[in-house]
Design a protein around this nucleic acid. Sequence first.
DNA 1: ACCGGCGATTAGAGCGCTCTAATTCCCGGC
DNA 2: GCCGGGAATTAGAGCGCTCTAATCGCCGGT
Lengths: 335, 335
Amino acid sequence: MTQVTQQQVAEKAGVSPALVSLVMRGAPNVSDHRRRLVLEAAAELGYRPNVLARSLASRRTHTIGVVVNDLHNPFFAEVADGIQAAADEADYRLLFGNGRHSPEGEAVAVETFLEFRVDGVIVAGTLELASIEEAARAVPLVVVARSEHIAWADTINTDNEAGAHLMVDHLVAAGHRRIAHIDGGGGAGAAHRSIGYVDAMRRHGLDDHIQIAAGDFTEDTGRAGAAELLDRARPPTAIFAANDLSAIGAFDEALSRGMRIPDDVSIGGYDNIGLAAMAHLGLTTINQPSEDIGAAALDMLLQRVETGRDATEHVVLPPELVVRTSSGPPPGDPT
Amino acid sequence: MTQVTQQQVAEKAGVSPALVSLVMRGAPNVSDHRRRLVLEAAAELGYRPNVLARSLASRRTHTIGVVVNDLHNPFFAEVADGIQAAADEADYRLLFGNGRHSPEGEAVAVETFLEFRVDGVIVAGTLELASIEEAARAVPLVVVARSEHIAWADTINTDNEAGAHLMVDHLVAAGHRRIAHIDGGGGAGAAHRSIGYVDAMRRHGLDDHIQIAAGDFTEDTGRAGAAELLDRARPPTAIFAANDLSAIGAFDEALSRGMRIPDDVSIGGYDNIGLAAMAHLGLTTINQPSEDIGAAALDMLLQRVETGRDATEHVVLPPELVVRTSSGPPPGDPT
DNA sequence: ACCGGCGATTAGAGCGCTCTAATTCCCGGC
DNA sequence: GCCGGGAATTAGAGCGCTCTAATCGCCGGT
């Protein structure tokens, strides 16, 4: 419980505290002899450097804070994996902050990170633009998986509008006309997926069939949204949910009404989380290269942290349609 | 980017740095007049307390580190929610460390926390006992969801053996005899679920039907384990997976072989994650009150942190069988 | 007017480390 | 044997904050 300090190690090893500091940081110009001496003393005493003191003195924490919107959403877990892998490689440590599925929660997490003086922050969530701007003034920051135009921070994401187009095009090609959308609310990228949906419907001359149910990227709202849509006088023959989680909810709602998928209703998602590939779901969805996004986000961030790059960078990756068994021709279609 | 310090706030407000410190900490004996003065100056300057410096001086970070075994496992996300809720209430901040699904990864995360001198640590994972012991010497620590007897730390978990008994009893009652188990490897509580499975099988005189496939709490190994079991000469009529995630994998494997559930094979899981309740899965499983566990873990920890309680505490909650549609009588059963 | 007492404020010494500048050490060259 | 120079080591001043002890200021009581 008691703190072992550099000082104590120094005394035990018979050297100066400064030398201990050098050894602990792996400095080059230390004689093997003394290095060994110090290392031994440290091990014997169970010395553990105090990051607080170190960071206070060096103004660097060598730590990146990652704000995750929702620990429950596998998409973020996948992005986090990518970040983690890149961080391991670069020898940075990672701290995660839980956004509790709300912008306010994320703001709290960011504030915590700022107070801890992390070297950089990655926002994988729905933090408000104003908060992002403020945070970006204090620390290098990159925003992941959003489509908004953000001037003061790096961004990396797929083209969410294009992704929505892919899905609608696919459904239309299968013969659907009454294609509804379950919105993602404030979810990362949700707004642009919604825009893309409306766009594509218009392009296909399907203006009259545009139907949107509210949602927020969760299974629960997916279920509720599907219920609402399926209860309508002219229910959709296909439902495009803003993300896989809500698609799963919609899937579940349809099933529990005794509907068959895709025979009675087709369902499309977005994200291509691992679960989507499961045989019992077979969710048609839009793939985002989540781990790559995470890894790239960390790389961009470190580049900024270490080289002090100032100009912002914006990477947009192409989304990709993944067709599985949850989509097919609409009921009554002769094809 | 530049640090605003207490000193600067003090100058601007025309008071001493010490007073600023008092105000920032919400100390009682400060006149309203000065308090306002300081607060205004702080806001104007955009002052943000430096937690590093604060913690270095006060030896308290007011932060709890939570080591999560695997960001992908919803069970941990649920536990985390419980911890988060309790932390919000107690006004402690939370930092999450990703264990990357391995004891070594968790050890790294714990080390990071110790270096940051968090006030306490919650381990929701598979960290090795030796590491736990070492960490527990340096910081108050509670271990979640494990069944091992741990002397030097608080623990909270459900009775994993009893849970396994419930599942086997249920399956036997439905008429099954060839009940196999997909192991959870080093997963939290997995060892005792396995023991419970073997125990219960013996109790029912089913020694000869004991079959265990290796696994590690993931969908992938669930799938592989099921494949291995179903390929055997006398395949099981029921599979009890060590957790829901691997049960889902097993579910998927069975389905993709054209088997029907529960008609051709029954499947049972453990954890009762949100997904398990979905209609298309309808996973029979063992419920653990995950959020309650998380909340209780934090409470125990804080009690230790704040009152310096020394004796360890061990809470064991009862597991609960949740029967859904993934389990039923074995094929060919007249019932 | 003076004093005691108490709440409000401040001075100043660290917390454990890093970093710059200064010092010491050691070696080869002359 | 002496000197220069580079490598190895150390002294010492902070980093931004908290905390203890000391000081200040104001009130009522006498």
